[in-house]
Simulated assay, not measured.
Amino acid sequence: MSSVLGADQQALIDLVRRYPRLCVLTGAGVSTDSGIPDYRDEKGEWKRPPPMTHQVYMKSHLGRQRYWARSLVGFRLLAHATPGRAHQALAALEAQGFIEGIITQNVDRLHQKAGSRRVVDLHGRADLVRCMQCNLLVRRHVLHDHLATLNPDWVGMEAEIAPDGDAYLDEVDFSTFRLPECPRCGHGILKPDVVFFGDNVPRGRLERAMSILDDSQALLVVGSSLMVFSGFRFARHAASRGMPMACLNRGHTRADALYSLKCEAPIDESLTALLEGLSDVDGSRLMG
């Protein structure tokens, strides 16, 4: 290997050798090397103002104007992001049979772009927009093109980028920002096809995620503080089954008391080391 492993990184390799079918649960920390900011600091506290909630989005026209104006400025970062070494290592581990599936709290689709095949997008997909009245799905870039046509003065505006394609625009009047109507029903609210804070994960999606966990031998949490219950529930479920759990994340997480191993090292480096370390096992295992 290219560098000396820390004790926790070696322990992670040893754990996966003992339990070679992983369920991997990922959060924002797995995508920071792709240039996408995360939400929380090492204490698990918000780094920035909390994001839009489902209730505000659905009830407030001005809230939706604010959301889409900021998105028109900030989403290009998310749209053009490419997988980092962490995504690539996880895809390679899945291809070699060490990962049963990935449950991701991210909405950036970078796991799929890296080549991971069994992925549950727990919080949905940021590249799609849904009409909340007639259920029409449209590609987000199509909606953004329309937003740019309706609001040409906002195109090219510069701002600090926030998580999930948001942008910080302070002291800006959003009341003149024009929103498009649903192209099919003409009056439904268009919303990103993601689970906003305060909303619930659809039952079928949750069941698919739990199926991956139940088919696995161990749970590996990567880049998530699990402060949101939608992710924490998987650690709690694994603990109830007596399943070994490891975490690769810097700082406090909600499930720290449940882990058998906590590795506070760089995510991309540690997953690359895990891939290289597991490649030293018997070749017949890799062919399985």
Rank of each mutant, 00 (worst) to 15 (best):
C134H: 00
L122K: 13
V194C: 14
R241N: 11
L143C: 05
G124E: 07
A218S: 13
R85G: 08
V142E: 13
R205Y: 01
W68L: 07
L286M: 03
N249L: 00
D8S: 10
H252E: 11
L93R: 14
D8I: 00
G101E: 02
A89T: 09
P83Q: 09
L206N: 08
G74M: 12
S31C: 05
L179H: 08
R117G: 02
D14M: 03
V221Y: 07
A126F: 15
G251I: 15
I212T: 01
I36M: 11
R285F: 11
P49D: 02
M1C: 12
D173M: 09
V155N: 00
M287I: 02
V281S: 13
S284Q: 15
V228D: 06
T253I: 06
T176M: 05
A11K: 14
G84Y: 10
L77Q: 13
R21I: 00
L143S: 06
E264G: 10
L278R: 14
H141Q: 06
F174R: 12
G6Y: 01
F177V: 04
I102N: 10
A209S: 01
H237G: 00
R236N: 07
D193C: 04
R66Q: 15
A11E: 13
A235E: 03
P51M: 03
R70P: 04
D121F: 13
L122Y: 13
W68P: 09
M58S: 07
F232Q: 10
D280V: 05
E269R: 12
R64K: 14
T32H: 12
R125I: 10
K191H: 02
W68N: 09
V222R: 14
K262P: 00
G186Y: 07
L206Y: 02
L15K: 15
Y259P: 00
F75P: 11
D166G: 03
P266H: 13
L93C: 11
S240G: 15
H111F: 05
V201K: 00
S260L: 07
L275Y: 13
A162G: 09
L271T: 13
A95H: 12
G6N: 07
G204S: 14
E181Q: 04
G198Y: 06
A91T: 08
V24W: 05
I103P: 00
V30K: 01
D8H: 06
V4K: 09
L275K: 14
V142L: 11
N151H: 11
R178E: 07
R21F: 01
L219N: 01
V73S: 10
D127Y: 08
Q10W: 03
C182H: 02
S116G: 09
R76L: 03
G188C: 00
S116D: 05
N106L: 09
G198H: 05
C185S: 01
A265C: 03
D8C: 03
V24Q: 04
Y19H: 15
W154M: 03
F177Q: 02
R178A: 09
R205I: 11
R21T: 03
G97Q: 09
L128Q: 13
R139V: 09
I103D: 02
H54L: 01
N200K: 10
A265Q: 10
L128K: 12
C182A: 01
K43S: 15
G251T: 15
C247G: 11
A95L: 08
G115Q: 06
P180H: 02
S34Q: 05
Q217T: 07
E158P: 00
M245S: 04
R233N: 00
L220V: 09
R64S: 13
W68Y: 12
L77W: 07
P20L: 03
V120S: 12
Q65Y: 15
S240H: 14
G6T: 11
